[in-house]
Design a protein around this nucleic acid. Structure first.
Lengths: 224, 224
DNA sequence: TTTGACATAGAACGAGCGTTCTTTTACAAT
DNA sequence: ATTGTAAAAGAACGCTCGTTCTATGTCAAA
């Protein structure tokens, strides 16, 4: 493999223009649009430089296809995408966990929720779970401190009532009248709820009086 | 505003096809490609349905422009984008925080790092900070437990040595020979490092013997 | 000076592709 | 029965756009 990864200033301009164009319009530019943007008067010259960029590994092209150019590597200056179609998964932030109140999960979840309350999450935080099954709750107060979760954290949960032993779950406890996050272990008629903090003791509750609201997938702590 | 937000099965198929096509190819399909995919034999019928989708708020179109269709709202079943050009900000995961070892930050950071070690983070976790100034560290062990950070957490830091009082920072302590995460308060010649956990006591160190490696922006706890 | 790779221009070809127009069918409302 | 509207088909028009070919200029190596 020869050393052909160096690209010219002009070619870098092409990349930058393409990133902005795609981000703004949602589709790639044509050869002529690229030429006009970076000051090349001939379509063949644009074509020539595009092929150079393909050789250098920055682009892929689809022959004889209008706008058939795809970015495969960034030019270095990465901006934030404003095009919602291409963003990370979003999940609805449907409320708060407050120790003294149950979590109410709307039944029609997954179909239409408030556009306002959708938050972005990185795909890696979902562990392969379909984003439409996931919701988020904001932790209010320090009641989850024994689960290593502090005030302001955002907890990502998968809506499910059947859970495996060891799963971290959000459970509503009838006896205490509160929701907590604990590791779940079924032990006969009873359920052992183990705090994440290793020095803290588990609590035991009757299986009939503990309602699993969802399994915790991950925790986000924004802007510490 | 009339109730025109209901879309037909055929129109939903168009949306789904478009999402997959764009995600896979990097550019939107043509009218004829849509027609072939969803079983419409006439370009005018595709055009008709596309305009319906525009009315319903799912699409935007650019007149007389090849592939001039843009998704503005998802069809509900969101998949993960595989096209790197459109993704969330990525930051390099450059190492681990182990209590017994300092964090070594490469000097040429921000120019070229291992493609492998880039991790996605939601823009909201960066709080406006330029992603190129951010790096990530994986927490190894439970030494940060007093900062409400547990084993396996990923800490996002902004590379900086000048910090404000109250910032959560990663500091290397000469005396202890370890790195910790604490809230930073300058107090004359000394520095007060306050654990995040409210019940724990601060530690005081000489300002000359404490080296700030970066400011903590946020914490991710994947796959609890 | 000659050679040859590289970069650029310009033009022309032909397929790609959005648009529009005319018809036809289905179905509910009048 | 008539009217009106939504949905669909097919064809034709004309601009869009990638491709290709020829020509010109540059510059370093031979």
């Amino acid at each position: 493999m020869r050393e052909r990864n160096k690209i010219s200033e002009k070619q870098r301009n092409i990349l930058r223009f393409m990133e902005g164009f795609i981000d703004q319009k949602g589709y790639p530019p044509t050869i002529r649009q690229i030429g006009e943007a970076v000051g090349i008067d001939s379509t063949s010259v644009v074509n020539y430089n595009l092929n150079k960029l393909v050789q250098a590994g920055y682009l892929e092209r689809t022959g004889r296809t209008s706008r058939g150019i795809r970015l495969v590597k960034s030019s270095g200056s990465r901006r934030l995408s404003v095009n919602p179609a291409y963003n990370t998964p979003r999940v609805p932030l449907i409320g708060q966990i407050v120790a003294s109140a149950p979590v109410s999960i709307p039944d029609d979840m997954g179909h239409h929720f408030d556009e306002e309350s959708l938050i972005e999450v990185p795909a890696s935080m979902l562990n392969g779970v379909d984003p439409s099954e996931v919701f988020a709750l904001k932790v209010k107060g320090d009641s989850m401190i024994d689960a290593m979760i502090s005030d302001g954290d955002i907890v990502l949960l998968r809506r499910q009532d059947a859970v495996k032993d060891g799963d971290m779950v959000a459970v509503w406890l009838d006896e205490r009248g509160e929701t907590t996050l604990k590791h779940f272990f079924a032990e006969g008629q009873r359920v052992r709820l183990q705090p994440a903090h290793p020095t803290m003791s588990p609590i035991y509750v009757d299986a009939a009086h503990c309602h699993v609201q969802g399994r915790v997938l991950s925790v986000l702590r924004p802007s510490v």
